[in-house]
Amino acid sequence: MMSSLRDALADGRFAVTAEIGPPRGADPDVVTRKAELLRGWVHAANVTDNQGAHVRMSSLGAAVLALRAGVEPVMQITCRDRNRLALQSDLLSAAALGIPNVLLLTGDHPIHGDHPDGKPVFDLDGVQLVWTARTMRDDHRLLSGRRLTAPPTWTIGAVENPFAPPPGFRAHRLLKKAVAGAEFVQTQFVFDVPRFAAWMSEVRDLGIPERCAVIAGVGPLRSLRVLEHVRDNVPGTHVPDALERRLRGVPSARVDDEGVTACVETIQALREIPGVAGVHVMAFGFEHGIPEILSRSDLDPQEATPEVEPAALPGGVPHAG
C-alpha cells in the first residue's frame, strides 16, 4: 500500500503529520473540511479514536473520509473500547479500506471522558497491540495463531511520552514498542526542548531511531486558556514555567501570535536534534493555522508532498518494513 509517510521516513525527509479530530455527529463534511485545510501540507494526518475518551465518529469511518478528501490518514486505534477480537478485525478493515498507516495506543481511561460510567476494556495494552499488528502483517497470523488469508500492509506507529515518570524507563518503554514492531512513534507535546533532547540522547543510545522513526509532537498555545487546559487536563504534558511566563508577559491580544511563534521556534529547534525524523502538529481546532506554522518553520508544501508519486521516483523507494 502506498504510504507517503513511510516513504518520507524511509528517504530521511523530515516528516510532517497533523491531526484530524472526528466530529461529535454524523456530518462527513466536518472531516472533509479539516482534511482540505491540511491537504498538500502534511505527509499524513492522524485520525483520533474517541480522543480523551469522548465519543466521536469512529476513527475508521473518519479515516476513510480523510482518504477520500485526499489526505493520507494515520488511523488511531486504542485498547480502551475494544477487546482483542474487535481490535484485530478493525485492523483488517483498515487495511481493506486502503488506510496505509495505523497508530496503536493504550488510550485514555474512560473516567476522564464523557462516559465515565462505561466499562474500560484494556484487554491488550499498547505494546501488545503493536506486537499483534506486527504479527498479523509479517507473520500473517492472528493472536490465536490462525492464518490470515490476505495479510494487511499498513505502517505501524505508536506513541510515547518522554516527560512522564518514571524518567529512567521512558526510552526503554519506547524500545519495547520498537522491538514489538512500531516503525514510527509520535510523542506527547514537546514544550521543553532541552528535556526532550536529553531523552532523545537516551533514545539514540538504545539505537531506536534506526528501527523506529521518532516524530516529535508540537502545538501552539494560542491563549492562556489553552495553556491552562493543556497544563492541567491533557494527561502527561509538561509546560515549562519559562514558556508560561513568556505567554503571560505579552498583551492579551498578542498571546495568540506569541504562542504560534513559540511553536515555530520549537519546530526549528527540534529539527536540529539528531534522530528527530519529523514533527506531529496538534492544533486544537486551529487546523487552518497549520499551514502558517509549517511555512514559518520552513516546512513548505513542496517539501512535504512531492509532486511525483513517490513510487515513481528514480531508484525507487526502499520499503522500511
Partner: peptide, 11 residues
C-alpha cells in the same frame, strides 16, 4: 488499565 508492559503516558 491493567498494563503489563509499563506505565501509560498519563502518569
Amino acid at each position: 488499565k491493567e498494563l503489563r508492559n509499563g506505565p501509560c503516558g498519563g502518569v
